[in-house]
């Protein structure tokens, strides 16, 4: 349960979510990640460190640079994540049901 809470805290931060989305497109070096944000390099590397500690990123040393990519397996293990996604669509679809009722009644 301890790890799980860490994961939720890790992705609760908008910058860390953005970092995950950015890296999801491919392996990136720490410098290249930081270039995409207005925050300082130190701030971004702190965020990267937290994501790495939670097991959401995999670190790879290539020469002098450190590269990161998404740990797909760990991302998938957060199984509950598909449920909010489903609920969100369901909420939209229920609104569509109401619109359908209204349109039928006004016919």
């Amino acid at each position: 349960m301890e790890t799980r809470r860490d994961v939720f805290q890790a992705i609760a931060d908008p910058t860390r979510r953005s970092i995950l989305i950015l890296i999801s497109a491919g392996t990136l070096g720490a410098g290249a990640i930081a270039e995409n944000f207005d925050s300082s390099r130190q701030t971004i590397s702190k965020h990267i460190q937290i994501l790495n500690e939670c097991g959401l990123l995999v670190k790879e040393q290539k020469g002098r640079e450190i590269y990161y990519h998404i740990n797909s397996q760990n991302m998938k293990e957060i199984a509950d994540f598909i449920e909010p996604f489903r609920e969100l669509w369901e909420a939209k679809f229920q609104k569509m049901d109401k619109i359908i009722d209204n349109l039928k009644n006004t016919k």
């Binding site: 995950l20 989305i21 797909s72 991302m75 957060i78």
Partner: peptide
């Protein structure tokens, strides 16, 4: 990976409700 980021991190319009729930 992009697909997973989208589903699990609410990359599309899911930002609002997923993260308020989170």
């Amino acid at each position: 990976e992009v697909r997973d980021a989208m589903v699990q991190h609410g990359m599309q319009q899911q930002f609002d409700s997923i993260f308020s729930k989170l």
